[in-house]
Design a protein around this nucleic acid. Structure first.
Ligand code: MN
Ligand code: MN
Ligand code: MN
Ligand code: MN
Lengths: 218, 218
DNA sequence: ACAAATTTTTAGATTTGCCTAAAAATAATT
DNA sequence: AATTATTTTTAGGCAAATCTAAAAATTTGT
């Protein structure tokens, strides 16, 4: 399995609902920053190897082995992200690029020992769940902050967008995973929110609220 | 810099005296388990990029940037080997294959943080010196056990051959880096040796003694 | 239902890295 | 010095992964 094949599987996994559902050629091309014709080529190869089910003009879907392999790559990606943050002083906005490389290292023992060394983390530094070695992903009990009403509260448990720009903006707001967020007021006009976090009140845009997941209290 | 280019630089580095001296095409082909024609191809590419000095039919030599890059790859290889043994319970005969992959991960921060996390090790699990970030390699004060005479002694500090077969044989003999070795007797007929290590006496062949480095006492 | 717009596939090229077989250069032997 | 053997390079080809441009299929809009 080549690095490129693994990257395609991962992209298809993310674009489908964690591997359930058909994905369009252009969607993959956009996600991977490549051309539709390259996607068609690769999808044919993956289909040869029974990693995807491909129907011309209809789209592509992961098979069971394809789904398992994708989940394993994502497992490695997220475990390495935890390692970088917990052990090597990386900030959460610095880990993705390096994890993109580390996720392709092939060694069962390495993954399992790393998992143990990190004490079996359940989520990565962005709050995304870490698949187990069989490819099963825990579904997390979280909702978009934007979907909540005034006076509701919860714990900041994840981000929808993990671009370094957004993560750095959250750093600037001193908003970190684990923080308790209370919604003071929600502005009907533009859906911006006044929230309290760490004894401070701040105002965030609807766009920001749409990229923050909380686990609701009660 | 591609993975393949890095592997060639590393091979040339090892075949020359850590980057000083000319290496033959066939020597590289043997080391890398490939064909001489492939080596010629690659050596031309490396020469284009000024990583080697190549003279047709005469051989190839690392330039200063080529030498630096090779040393950096070797630095990463050896740091990762330390990580695998010290933190992830790998045995010294299991690390090489994985380190061959990890040595190509590109991130200055990763290397330097890893070095710090491991508390700046000087040698890898096989006793080989770890280059510093500028590519400088400490020359170690060690000699082949085979070159020593009866009644001499020293500390086991490295292996010449780090194949898993040899390392597993040493495990079987309960010989580990750091052990004190005393030469009891050296057999003139076949240069085998009777040695004492960990209060036990064992007999080792000349071939074995030729793959063990010690730091002489006194 | 048909034309227009969009999506997807095919055709043909390019680059990297490798191969085999043949030719050229160098080294070793008589 | 000439022949033989060895080493190295060249020539030509192949597979993976990408691209551009053109053709084909599907979807959308009237
Ligand atoms: Mn990531
Ligand atoms: Mn992540
Ligand atoms: Mn090694
Ligand atoms: Mn080593």
């Amino acid at each position: 399995m080549t690095r490129s094949e693994e990257n395609y599987l991962k992209a298809i996994f993310h674009l489908s609902n964690n591997g359930v559902g058909v994905v369009a050629t252009n969607a993959i091309a956009d996600q991977m920053d490549t051309k539709a014709s390259s996607v068609t080529d690769m999808v044919k190869r993956l289909s040869e190897k029974d990693l995807v089910k491909y129907i011309k003009y209809k789209g592509v879907e992961l098979t069971a082995p394809g789904k398992l392999h994708a989940a394993k790559v994502i497992r490695k990606h997220r475990l390495w992200e935890v390692f970088l943050v917990e052990k090597l002083h990386f900030n959460w906005d610095e880990v993705h690029e390096v994890a993109e490389q580390l996720e392709h290292i092939k060694s069962e023992k390495l993954v399992e020992e790393l998992d143990s060394f990190l004490e079996y983390p359940k989520v990565d530094p962005h709050g995304d769940p870490i698949p187990d070695k069989h490819g099963n992903i825990q579904k997390l009990d979280k909702v978009l902050l934007a979907s909540c009403k005034a006076e509701e509260s919860g714990v900041f448990v994840g981000v929808e967008n993990s671009s370094s720009e957004f993560l750095q903006y959250l750093d600037k707001l001193k908003l970190s995973l684990g923080d308790i967020i209370e919604i003071i007021e929600k502005e009907a006009f533009d859906n911006s929110m006044q929230i309290r976090v760490n004894q401070e009140q701040i105002n965030i845009s609807a766009l920001t609220a749409n990229n923050i997941y909380i686990k609701k209290n009660k």
